[in-house]
Structure formats: C-alpha cells, structure tokens
C-alpha cells in the first residue's frame, strides 16, 4: 500500500477580481508516495507547495480529485476522524516554528498529548524526543529563550511525539543557518532509515540530496527532477 496517493488533484481559488475567472492552482496533480519513501518537492514561490502539504494533511479540504493518505480517503472523513488521523499518524513541521509562546519546550512537545485520547507514555517520550534533537537541557525553557534552530528542533520533536508513520515538512530548514540545517537533515535521514515516510517541501539542494526522490512543482504539475533523481 502506498502512503500517499493523489489523483487528478485540483485546487481552485476564488477569482482575483469580481467577475473574473476562478484561479486554478493545479492542472490535476498525480502522485504516489510509497511507504518509507523520502520525497522532496521543489518549486517556485506560489506554485502551491504549502497548499499541497495542507491538502495531504487534511488541513485544507477545498479541493477536487482524490486524496488517499495512509489508506484513508480523506474526503469521506469527518472533522473528528481527520483530527484523529493528524493526531496519531501524521507529523507536521512548518517553516516558521509555530511554538506556543506561553508553554515550555517540553510542554510544546507534549502538545499532541493535550488532544484526543492523548499519547501513551507522553512525558517520557517527550523527554526522549528533546534528547534526540539535542535539547535535553532546554526542557523548561520558553520559546523566547531559544534560538531559531532550537525552536525548529522543538517543533520536530513535537511532530514525532505520536511516532507517526508520515511526516510532512514545509521548508524545515528555510530559516536556519547552514550548520543547524545540517543537523535537521541528518535527523530526517535517520527517520527515513527507521522506515518513516517523509514528504518535504524545500528550496535547498542539501535537503533534496537526502531524499530518495525529488519532484518539481511547475506550471500546475509535478515533474521528476532530472539533476538529482536517484542520487541518494
């Protein structure tokens, strides 16, 4: 079974000016991501890469076509079922770090445990996760007291708390310096080795090099990237 299947995926935005034609973001995307694959997606700004991740993660439901994620046909799921799917089986990492300012690093990692049925053994897992991203000693720091790289690592530890089989990441290294970015790419490699499916939007060649497949979103369709294909 494939982890992600997109069939004739279209996204339509309302017309820019009143009376104009609706904006069609894609021409009908087709994509199959196998279990355990690490797929990188590149593309110019505004081609809809973030939108694609939101659709795959069930955060954006206004689309045409078919989306199957981890065996579930998203269109048929209720709000609660979608929330449960995100809770237990999908991890999100965003470009800007999106931590809750009033919670400590540990509490931010524990955030998924606040919802649904919680996460088994959450606190121990959260501390392990922080240790894995090298932040064991920052558990009780507030986001304000963390550097950009540290915040992104907290966000990654949060995405991994439920041990999801699928990780969606939107330019995870976009705001980081080269060295910090390298640490995160190493972590993704490790997750990939452990069998996790990764769909990562990126501008960075270093990230794409770590991927098992690289696609480019251009003119409303996905194309294989000939430069990097199969280099990992």
């Amino acid at each position: 079974m494939s982890a992600i299947e997109l069939r004739a995926l279209r996204k339509r935005y309302p017309p820019r000016e009143p009376g104009g034609a609706p904006q069609d973001l894609w021409r009908g995307l087709e994509l199959t991501v196998g279990e355990g694959e690490f797929v990188a997606i590149e593309g110019q700004s505004g081609t809809g890469k973030s939108t694609l991740l939101h659709v795959v993660g069930g955060l954006d439901r206004a689309y045409e076509g078919e989306v199957l994620v981890l065996g579930e046909r998203l269109r048929g799921l209720s709000d609660a079922r979608l929330a449960a799917l995100r809770h237990a089986r999908i991890g999100f990492v965003f470009q800007s770090f999106n931590l809750l300012a009033e919670l400590t690093a540990l509490e931010n990692v524990l955030l998924p445990d606040y919802f649904g049925d919680g996460v088994p053994d959450a606190e121990r897992r959260a501390r392990e996760g922080l240790a894995r991203v090298g932040l064991a000693d920052k558990a009780s720091s507030r986001p304000m007291a963390l550097s950009g790289g540290e915040r992104q690592r907290v966000a990654i530890a949060r995405a991994l708390l439920s041990r999801p089989p699928l990780l969606l990441a939107d330019e995870p290294t976009g705001n980081l310096d080269a060295r910090t970015g390298e640490g995160i790419i190493d972590l993704f490699r490790e997750l990939h080795r452990d069998g996790m499916t990764l769909l990562v939007v990126t501008h960075e060649v270093r990230v794409s090099r770590a991927a098992s497949r690289v696609l480019v979103l251009r003119e409303g369709a996905l194309f294989p990237d000939p430069r990097l294909e199969g280099s990992a």
Partner: peptide, 12 residues
C-alpha cells in the same frame, strides 16, 4: 492552526 495540525478538533 498549530493545535488543529497536532490533532485538536473544532470542539477542542
């Protein structure tokens, strides 16, 4: 949005 992404429902 972040809370929804980690599994919060509308009700939550």
């Amino acid at each position: 949005g972040v809370m929804r992404a980690v599994g919060a429902t509308r009700g939550d």
